[in-house]
């Protein structure tokens, strides 16, 4: 069971969180304007990285906030968690341990 650092509440058990898929997929400003291909990309295509990826979590049974995290999917180690609207931190640096 993961230990996840909510940017608001601090480290909490995974039991309090819900997973939200890949991060930084921005809803098109005016979806009507985009092509079918762009729509397909937006709706369905995800990277599913083996390694470091940015993903969404929500502290559902906590402060209720959505936030983003950088996690290495091969080790489950979080390199960072950060609030919505903040830029993804440069990866590679080990922040835990």
């Amino acid at each position: 069971m993961l230990l996840i650092k909510c940017p608001y509440c601090g480290e909490r058990s995974e039991l309090e969180f819900s997973y939200g898929g890949q991060a930084h997929i921005v809803r098109p400003l005016i979806p009507s304007d985009i092509t079918d291909e762009a729509l397909t990309e937006y709706l369905y295509h995800r990277d599913n990285i083996k390694g470091v990826q940015a993903e969404r979590w929500r502290h559902l049974h906590g402060c209720g906030r959505f936030f983003n995290a950088v996690r290495d999917t091969t080790t489950d180690h979080f390199q960072a968690t950060y609030k919505i609207g903040e830029a993804q931190p440069a990866s590679g640096a080990k922040s835990d341990g």
Partner: peptide, 13 residues
């Protein structure tokens, strides 16, 4: 409720 919070918090701040 989760879906609505999602849009409010992440898309339509």
């Amino acid at each position: 409720l989760a879906m609505m919070e999602d849009y409010l918090q992440t898309e339509w701040q």
